[in-house]
Structures are given as C-alpha cells and as structure tokens.
C-alpha cells in the first residue's frame, strides 16, 4: 500500500500546553514542532540524530527530536527552548549569554536543553562531567570552551538560587 501522505490526528503536550494537530505519519517530532507549531527554536542540523541541534526534553530527558515520529510521542511532556525562560531568562540561558558561549547560535538551543537535563541531576559537576554531558551536541563555532564555562557557571548560579528558596 502506498502510504505517501497518510495523515493522522495527534495530541502533543509541549511546554505545558496541549496541541491538536494533523501530521503526516512520517513527520518527526522536529517536523511537527517547527513546521506545524512554529516552534523554530528547535533547530534542524542533520535530521539523522548526529548533531544534537534538535534536542528537546521528553519527560525531562534530552532526546533528538529528529529521531522520533510525532505520532509516537503522544502523552509525553515535551519541553522546547521556547518553554525554558519564564518571566526572565533561565540561569543557564543567562550564563550562556554572559560567558560568550554563543556564536552563530545554531547549536545553542540544543546545548542549553542538554545542559538543563544534566544540571537537573548533577548540581556540582566538574569540567569533565560537563564535557561528557554535551558530547552529543556538535558546535562548529565556539570550540566548546565557553560553552563548558557557561554550564559550570550556570551550575553555581542554580546552587546559589536553591539556597535562597
């Protein structure tokens, strides 16, 4: 049977909002986010699970959204870069800006979400821990140094923040 163009209605939970959309069964989560919902903060670098630019959080875990079919993520909680900042920038975002961890910025949303998932579980990482955590995210511009520094800085901001609450 020719399944070209076969459509399916699905429900997606993204950044705490529920969306009802119709997708081609071949559409990935990344396709749905970018082309249907206009959440273009999630980047497409390879579409093959190799660069990490499309990283989003699924139930808190970083995943390559180009590697999952949209029809398969129903019922999961997805967070994209657009959902990270509340009223003000998240400490990780703030640290990326201030440490100069952003150049062209195309890898940045994926890096930040990877860092978010990592720092949720590891509050006091070493340089090596951070490098390990982001090893699935490629950056062609920065040379990684300032990204690592930003994540370490974010970790200490988050620790300080916690003490206050």
């Amino acid at each position: 049977m020719n399944r070209y163009g076969l459509k399916e209605k699905i429900e997606l939970r993204i950044n705490h909002a529920t969306h009802h959309i119709e997708v081609d069964v071949r559409d990935t989560l990344l396709d749905a986010l970018r082309d249907q919902l206009g959440l273009t903060g999630t980047k497409r670098g390879c579409d093959m699970g190799e660069c990490g630019a499309c990283t989003v959080l699924m139930d808190g875990k970083p995943i390559n959204s180009c590697m999952l079919l949209a029809v398969d993520v129903m019922g999961r909680n997805i967070m994209t870069i657009e959902g990270l900042a509340q009223d003000e920038l998240h400490p990780i975002q703030q640290a990326f800006v201030e440490n100069g961890a952003v150049q062209c910025g195309f890898c940045t949303p994926g890096m930040i979400l990877t860092a978010k998932a990592f720092l949720d579980h590891c509050s006091n990482p070493t340089d090596d821990d951070v490098r390990q955590a982001i090893s699935g995210n490629l950056c062609r511009c920065t040379g990684y140094r300032k990204i690592v520094e930003a994540i370490l800085d974010a970790a200490s901001r988050l620790r300080r923040g916690k003490r206050h609450v």
Binding site: L39, T40, G41, K43, L89, F96, E98, V102, T108, P109
Partner: peptide
Amino acid sequence: TRLSGVDKVTGRAKYTYD
C-alpha cells in the same frame, strides 16, 4: 556580551531555516 545573545538562547532568533 553579544546583542543577539538573548534572542539566540531563547530560540527567538530567526534563521533562514526558521
């Protein structure tokens, strides 16, 4: 710090792809 930094870390920066 770069002027476009906030746009880039929030996903608001629009590239051609976007």
